[in-house]
Design a protein around this nucleic acid. Structure first.
Length: 561
RNA sequence: UGGGGUAUAGCCAAGUUGGUAAGGCAGCGGGUUUUGAUCCCGUUAUUCCCAGGUUCGAGUCCUGGUACCCCAGCCA
């Protein structure tokens, strides 16, 4: 996964130092711990690349662990999709996938241990009372009247919680730390709550579930994780993470380190918002090609390698940042440019008739599959009297900067002959429906000798035979949101949804692609020359190909063309 | 407002004990080119949030400010 040396970042420096000091017996163990409550997105890819990348370069291991402590939000569908996405990204987790729920028995015992040490108690305050007693930023919390229950009473009550003798909200188990702490997450954080809900892994075995803050350090310790990497918002929880590790009988002392989560402009990377886009039908599912989900990027045509190099290029730091979408696009262009087979596809067809080309004559032109990689071989492109070119590639008149077909001037049909536009045919509305041309038979593989006398030679354009080409559908995508930071700067009551770009999807259903692509399988990627990178969509059929535009080619146009 | 963090180019981001600002993306100029692509060459911070201070020397140390982010779920 790393041809290049992984770049320096503060986490690698910490690990280097730990190793130099002989910590953890020289071992490095990380984990990627998603909650199965949604699909993975590009932000998770950053975490995956970080955790698995570190494990790989230090000869360590990385576990895949589902943080499944809240049966209310989780589903098996998400577990399956997460496993598939992680695999697709090309990393391999250590052994079988783990579940925090695998440790529920141990966690329960550890909680009992805390009660026995007088470090945890059952609180019978109501949820609203607990919030009131917690205080706020300026007001310290105050102790619950139940804070000083005896160990025996706590033990009995916790058992009642577990044995389904109490109702939801009637009691919680809390750590006894410091209700006055300026760090609110230390004001007797809740360890267990009652949730009478069937769990996707443990079924109805439990009616009490441990909280993330209690579960995570223990799961890490149980699995022998050495470096537990999470995002910045958990910074305030680190003292409690350490408290849990110190005060329970666990076999290891993992350490938590926080890094800044990935933000991309013109999109959202919050599970809540992505779920809303799906649930309300603003997009066509989690794998809609406009979604920043792993499955969406995949369907869009992104490769695992491009996502990995992107993650490497954005680096890992503790500074809040918003990465430009252009970086992601640069990564996929760079990857695909190297090996994507080239093909010609006309998306807005305009018929061209070559008047001096014999009726019915067909010629097979030879074109390289890749201009810089001869080993990819050649392909055959049929040439006929009638071909399609893109409407954008023809103008009745244009200045010299326009390097395409202009009435009276010449242009090369890529891999074929030089043609000259002689006339146009219009329909009743006056719209051009056809361009009449002549071709120079002596220009295959060589340039015309007569310079300007037949009109200016302007450039090279792509085309597809009107009789041999394959009709197809092409889906063009634009950014999902029209604002760099969706939802920002709006009035009260407006949500990020008001920034959805109404033109994020354009379906072109009268496109023509060269016949060699017949039968191409879903996810096959091409560069449509002069247009961009495209991949075959899963909606394709034998009869009709459907392509998704992954990304356009880089464009450097003279300003006033 | 109490606590915890972060500030280096348009966007990410390196910068080890203070020694004279990496790299990528984007941009700009030029060359090659049967893709306005690719590739190649060159260029882009006298300056590191601001103000003082220490020092022969500060992005790195000290002092004081400013801006932004996170925390008051029985979510993760």
């Amino acid at each position: 996964m790393s041809e290049t040396k992984a770049p320096s970042n503060f986490i690698r420096q910490i690990i280097d130092r730990d190793l130099a000091e002989g910590k953890n017996d020289g071992q490095v163990a990380t984990r990627f711990p998603p909650e199965p409550n949604g699909y993975l997105h590009i932000g998770h890819a950053k975490s995956i690349c970080l955790n698995f990348g570190i494990a790989e370069s230090y000869g360590g291991s990385c576990n895949l662990r589902f943080d499944d402590t809240n049966p209310e939000k989780e589903e098996d569908e998400y577990i399956q999709s997460i496993k598939q996405d992680v695999q697709w990204l090309g990393v391999q987790w250590n052994g079988e996938e783990r579940f925090a729920s695998n440790y529920f028995d141990q966690l329960y015992d550890l909680a009992v241990g805390l009660i026995e040490k007088g470090l945890a108690y059952v609180d019978s305050l109501s949820p609203t009372e607990i919030a009131e007693y917690r205080g706020n930023f300026t007001t310290p919390g105050k102790p619950s009247p139940y804070r000083d229950r005896s160990v025996d009473e706590n033990l009995a009550l916790f058992e009642q919680m577990r044995d389904n003798k109490l109702d939801e909200g009637e009691a919680v188990l809390r750590a006894k730390i410091d209700m006055q702490s300026p760090n609110i997450s230390l004001r007797d954080p809740i360890l267990y709550r009652i949730r009478k809900k069937t769990h996707h892994q443990t079924g109805d075995k439990w009616v009490i579930y441990p909280m993330y803050d209690f579960t995570h350090p223990l799961s890490d310790a149980i699995e022998g994780i050495t470096h537990s990497l999470c995002t910045l918002e958990f910074e305030d929880h680190r003292p409690f993470y350490d408290w849990v590790v110190e005060n329970t009988a666990v076999p290891a002392s993992p350490r938590q380190y926080e890094f800044a989560r990935l933000n991309l402009n013109y999109t959202v990377t919050s599970k809540r918002k992505l779920k809303q886009l799906v649930d309300e039908g603003h997009v066509d599912g989690w794998n809609d090609p406009r979604m920043p989900t792993i499955s969406g990027l995949r369907r869009r045509g992104y490769t695992p390698a491009s996502i990995r190099t992107f993650c490497e290029s954005v680096g890992v730091s503790r500074a809040d940042s918003v990465v430009d979408m252009g970086m992601l696009e640069a990564a996929i262009r760079d990857d695909l440019n190297q090996y994507a087979p080239r093909a010609m596809c006309v998306m807005n067809p305009l018929k061209v008739v070559i008047e001096n080309w014999e009726e019915g004559k067909e010629e097979s032109l030879i074109a390289p599959v890749h201009p810089q990689n001869e080993s990819m071989g050649t392909r055959q492109v049929p040439m006929t009297r009638e071909v399609y070119i893109d409407r954008e590639d023809f103008r009745e008149e244009a200045n010299k900067k326009f390097k395409r077909l202009v009435l009276g001037d010449r242009v090369r049909l890529r891999y074929g002959y030089v043609v000259r536009a002689t006339d146009v045919v219009r329909d009743a509305q006056g719209e051009i429906v056809e361009v009449r041309c002549t071709y120079d038979p002596d220009t295959l593989g060589k340039n015309p000798e007569n310079a300007e006398d037949q009109g200016k030679m302007r450039g090279v354009i792509h085309w597809v035979s009107a009789v041999k080409g394959l009709p197809c559908e092409v889906r063009l995508y634009d950014r999902l949101f029209s604002a760099a930071n969706p939802g920002k700067g709006l009035e009260e009551g407006q949500s990020f949804l008001t920034h959805i770009n109404p033109e994020s999807l354009t379906v072109l259903d009268e496109c023509w692609v060269e016949p060699g692509l017949r039968g191409a399988l879903a996810e096959t990627r091409y560069q449509f020359e002069r247009e961009g990178y495209f991949c075959v969509d899963q909606d394709s059929t034998e009869e009709r190909l459907v392509f998704n535009q992954t990304v356009g080619l880089r464009e450097s146009w003279p300003k006033e063309a």
